[in-house]
């Protein structure tokens, strides 16, 4: 499924997280997501971009407008070359954190998306993908 548009954004600072949010909002509007769905995907983007910054040492966010022929949607990919996640099931649990956060980031973001996946190898990095369809 080739994306209609694709934005690649570096996330190295807290200001970059804000920029990612703004771009996701702009694309969500373009796709025509409802206000609640826009809010959900922008919030998920914020959580995932911040996770990448706090635990993955920063990385790259890719924001794609996608279409499967019938409907359009927004797909977000977050790639980092950080330490990776040893136990993904544990990392998805509410309340689990390896840092100082609330431990809501991953599990919370998953609930805010229609599709969600994590690929991670310890020592190599993490890729989180999340999509919301119209």
């Amino acid at each position: 499924m080739a994306p209609v548009t694709s934005d690649r954004m570096e996330v190295r600072s807290s200001d970059d997280v804000v920029r990612v949010r703004q771009q996701v909002r702009a694309r969500a509007l373009e796709v025509g997501l409802s206000l609640v769905d826009q809010t959900k995907i922008v919030t998920a983007a914020s959580e995932l971009a911040r996770n990448m910054l706090d635990y993955g040492g920063g990385g790259v966010a890719t924001i794609e407008v996608v279409s499967d022929g019938i409907r359009r949607g927004l797909r977000l990919v977050f790639d980092d070359q950080g330490p990776g996640i040893a136990d993904i099931q544990l990392a998805l649990k509410d309340g689990f954190t390896s840092g100082g956060g609330l431990g809501l980031g991953l599990g919370g973001a998953k609930r805010l998306c229609n599709e969600f996946s994590i690929d991670s190898k310890p020592g190599e990095g993490t890729r989180v993908t999340c999509a919301r369809w119209k």
């Binding site: 206000l35 959900k40 805010l112």
Partner: peptide, 11 residues
């Protein structure tokens, strides 16, 4: 919309 999202997020 923020209230709905916050609750879903678990906060």
């Amino acid at each position: 919309a923020v209230a709905i999202t916050l609750v879903e997020l678990g906060l």
